[in-house]
Design a protein around this nucleic acid. Structure first.
Lengths: 75, 75
DNA sequence: TCCAACTGGGGTAATTGGGGGG
DNA sequence: CATGTCCCAATTACCCCAGTTG
């Protein structure tokens, strides 16, 4: 996961994917912790053909915004 | 990622976050006290998916700089 | 193909959260 | 009222090595 100037992390891309390290940096946690969240189902993740995880940037942002859980308002 | 995978000290990052113990050390108080400040709304904090708190480094720095809000002198 | 960096998995120490009492 | 310390349970961080990434 390159941190170069022209890396693939385009915040504008709607379907942008982030690596575990990227998400870890955003939450100020260890990459292994992000993996643990994925295993616990707390965050959705897709796998590469080799088994590595990739996370949706939009979802990560929402979690960071402060929306831990969603309640049905009509309930 | 260039050389550093996940650096623990990303003070240059705009959205840098600090752990409770980090803030506690900066203020020379107990981590529990920092938690109380967060509960009292005296300092904004975001939570990890596991419930742990992370504080904005910029906000902490401003508080340390000595720019406290006007205390209620109406007493 | 080779290579440097990142990732996954397991296991163990340290930190954190929450309540209660001083 | 605010802070520091006690308890325990949960979460997180760092260690190893082998495999994937680009």
């Amino acid at each position: 996961m390159p941190t170069s100037a022209h890396n693939t992390s385009d915040s504008n891309a709607p379907g942008a994917l982030l690596t575990p390290s990227e998400v870890a940096t955003m939450f100020r946690v260890d990459p292994k912790t992000v993996t643990r969240w994925a295993k616990a189902g707390k965050i959705s993740a897709i796998r590469t053909l080799g088994g590595h995880r990739r996370f949706h940037e939009s979802e990560v942002r929402q979690l960071l915004t402060g929306v831990p859980e969603q309640r049905d308002p009509s309930a």
